[in-house]
């Protein structure tokens, strides 16, 4: 139970980021309905822990709690998601060309499917960077990935996503022949 002025502070600082909370949960869980439940749980948790919030970026703080709540949820219901390794070195393969990606990425359904097929640890950095516009520092705060590793994690995640889309394009081309 928080004093009234803390409740007002929570409403001003944290509640504006409920959209971000739902969006992150939606992509981590790959399910729009569960996302709302888990985001709600995370916001309540944040409310209970609010006295431990020491100022700083309220969005990153809330998203960190959302991420933890999501991972706990996945551990219970989809543990296989979390054991998928994501550390392959993909740098040997050049990225597909910009035109191919532009065509593939303009198809919402294909893009959504490609993003959802990424391992969760790749998916989260892409969502935080491209949809949430987080800096590397914020990504590090939310995910706990060391600051010096965010860039390489993100590069592998993007390469993987680009290759899935490039692979789709190649398949479509061979079907047309």
């Amino acid at each position: 139970m928080l004093p009234a002025q803390d409740k007002t502070r929570f409403e001003q600082l944290v509640l504006p980021h409920v959209d971000a909370a739902v969006n992150l949960a939606r992509w981590l869980l790959r399910n729009p309905h569960d996302a709302e439940d888990v985001a709600q749980e995370a916001v309540l948790r944040a409310y209970r822990f609010f006295s431990g919030f020491r100022g700083g970026d309220a969005r990153a703080w809330l998203l960190q709690i959302v991420r933890n709540t999501c991972y706990t949820w996945l551990e219970k219901r989809a543990p296989a998601e979390l054991v998928t390794e994501f550390n392959e070195e993909l740098h040997q393969v050049p990225l597909p060309n910009p035109e191919t990606i532009a065509v593939q990425a303009s198809d919402r359904a294909k893009l959504k499917a490609a993003l959802e097929s990424l391992p969760v640890r790749a998916r989260e950095v892409i969502v935080l960077r491209e949809l949430e516009g987080c800096s590397y520092k914020k990504i590090s705060e939310v995910t706990g990935i060391p600051m010096g590793t965010v860039m390489s994690t993100l590069s592998r995640a993007r390469e993987k996503l680009a290759q899935i889309l490039g692979g789709n394009a190649a398949k479509e081309a061979s079907n047309e022949l």
Partner: peptide, 27 residues
């Protein structure tokens, strides 16, 4: 340029899911 295409696609495809009015009321 590939990274730009990828970012454009991700940001313009309406993939962001915000909170519903119902969730806000519940919270």
């Amino acid at each position: 340029n590939t990274l730009k295409s990828l970012r454009d696609g991700l940001q313009k495809s309406d993939l962001y899911q915000g909170a519903s009015a119902r969730l806000r009321t519940r919270i």
